[in-house]
């Protein structure tokens, strides 16, 4: 879905999201956080890529060209491209590839080499391969059922890339088990990176504390009543993009 919203687009950065009202009625009540899949600064449009999973996304899919939509944003802290990186590894799992596209464009713009790894259940769920190849980006694919590319997890492809020794930074978005695997893998190789997280969200502005993730608490400021060595950070305003070394993902 492409949305013409020039004021919002002007401020948008890769990795940020918008909070979308899917219905003008009371069911579904809450907005849906959807990451920016495309940002066209020239045209003043953003594009949103979503998978139809429930009532909200079904209503979005039923919208017709020209319809008006209520979007709030841009929200959240997006990706930052650290100075000095030369070759990035970009890993997307399933619909998690959506927010990586604006980042991939930016990396290209900065002249940073990149390899993009896409993982999904099967070939049908691999998103954006053609666009990436048109962009001249090196793409490798893994599918659970082997219907396209390597048969197995995308983390295995990541391991091959990293042990090949080429990337000096990574960016990832996808399901938690994938991110968890990737965080542990990259830690082993001493490779830093950023991950974009997803969580059930309420307000989208940091007020309701619904969408939290565990973060390794900074020393000396543990706001803790149980000394478990983590604090909850807000995915909507402290993220959705976090330093990979900071987050603790549950199983």
């Amino acid at each position: 879905m492409r949305v013409y919203v020039p004021q919002l687009t002007k401020l948008a950065k890769p990795g940020q999201f918008v909070h979308v009202r899917c219905s003008s009625g009371l069911d579904p009540l809450l907005r849906r956080p959807i990451s920016l899949h495309g940002i066209d600064y020239g045209k003043g449009t953003i594009s949103l890529l979503y998978q139809v999973v429930g009532t909200g996304t079904r209503l979005l899919a039923e919208m017709a060209p020209g319809d008006e939509i209520d979007v709030m944003g841009p929200l959240g802290k997006g990706f930052t491209v650290p100075d000095g990186i030369k070759k990035a590894l970009v890993v997307g799992g399933g619909i998690g590839v959506a927010p990586l596209f604006p980042l991939i464009h930016s990396l290209k713009h900065y002249g940073i080499q990149q390899t993009v790894l896409l993982g999904a259940r099967s070939a049908d769920f691999i998103i954006g391969r053609e666009q990436l190849e048109l962009l001249g980006v090196k793409v490798k694919i893994a599918t659970d059922d082997g219907s396209l590319g390597y048969k197995g997890f995308v983390t295995r492809l990541a391991e091959d890339e990293i042990s090949g020794g080429t990337p000096d930074y990574f960016f990832a978005c996808g399901p938690n088990p994938m991110l968890k695997g990737l965080i542990s893998l990259t830690k082993g190789f001493g490779l830093s990176g950023q991950v974009s997280l997803e969580e059930y969200m309420g307000c989208g502005v940091g007020a309701c504390l619904a969408c939290v993730c565990k973060s390794k608490a900074a020393a000396g400021r543990e706001p803790d009543d149980s000394a478990e060595g983590f604090e909850y950070k807000k995915v909507c305003v402290d993220g959705p993009v976090f330093e990979a070394s900071e987050v603790i993902l549950d199983d």
């Binding site: 059930y200 969200m201 309701c208 939290v212 549950d250």
Partner: peptide
């Protein structure tokens, strides 16, 4: 300070 409950913390 209170840490709060584990996620998910919200359901529609």
């Amino acid at each position: 300070p209170r840490k709060g409950n584990p996620t998910p913390r919200i359901a529609e």
